[in-house]
């Protein structure tokens, strides 16, 4: 694969389609600027600030845009809130749509057949693969990302975090809790 990729890159750069240094810059930007830390800041803010939480649920692109640290948030970001009665989970059955600017590049499992095939039919079984078990009466809402909308799950704030700062709260927010295949860490649990 490596040789084949290198050959294609040679062909394209020799034709003048791109400067290879621009490819380096793209990779570097992905490696350093995007990642679940962005989403975790947003969730922690929503847990701490009721007005921001409401703004996030009303229009996540606009709300995240006001935070500054995620300046390049895309259009049509939708935040969906977990409650005691409803758990949200996000999938892209057709390819790999994922809120890159909030969570970084998607993990392999998110893009692979087991998750894409089962998430919409057997979400509780998928959650079990992640070690997550929810009450049997909880509604499980699966969002299939079939268009250019992108979904961010707003998990429930763990109990025992009263008075915590946004920085402390952000440390509890895992990537999977924002996809809906996990729950936030609980205070005092080993990380």
């Amino acid at each position: 694969m490596e040789l084949r990729v290198r050959a294609l890159e040679s062909i394209l750069s020799e034709k003048g389609y791109f400067d290879p240094a621009a490819l380096d810059a793209i990779v570097q930007a992905y490696e350093t600027r995007i990642g679940p830390h962005n989403g975790a800041r947003v969730v922690a803010k929503a847990w701490s600030d009721p007005a921001f939480r409401q703004a996030l649920l009303d229009d996540a692109t606009k709300a995240v845009g006001t935070l500054g640290h995620v300046s390049r948030v895309g259009d049509h970001l939708v935040a969906v809130e977990n409650t005691p009665d409803r758990h949200n989970m996000v999938v892209c059955t057709l390819c790999s749509c994922y809120p890159w600017e909030m969570l970084g590049l998607p993990p392999v499992w998110y893009k692979a057949a087991p998750y894409r095939s089962r998430a919409v039919k057997d979400p509780r079984g998928v959650l079990a693969d992640f070690g997550v078990s929810l009450p049997k009466e909880t509604e499980i809402r699966v969002w299939d990302s079939t268009a250019e909308t992108r979904f961010l799950v707003l998990p429930m704030r763990p109990s025992g975090t009263e008075g915590w700062s946004e920085d402390q709260l952000a440390d509890l927010v895992t990537r999977d809790s924002m996809i809906g295949t996990g729950l936030p860490k609980t205070p005092g649990a080993p990380s």
Binding site: E9, V27, G104, P107, W109, D129, D176
Partner: peptide, 25 residues
């Protein structure tokens, strides 16, 4: 579903070049 603990962003360097070429083109 088999999550990989501490999954790297790319498993091979060429993957990052493919991503960048698709984005650039």
């Amino acid at each position: 579903v088999e999550p990989e603990p501490n999954e790297p962003m790319f498993h091979e360097e060429w993957e990052s070049r493919v991503l960048a070429m698709v984005r650039a083109m």
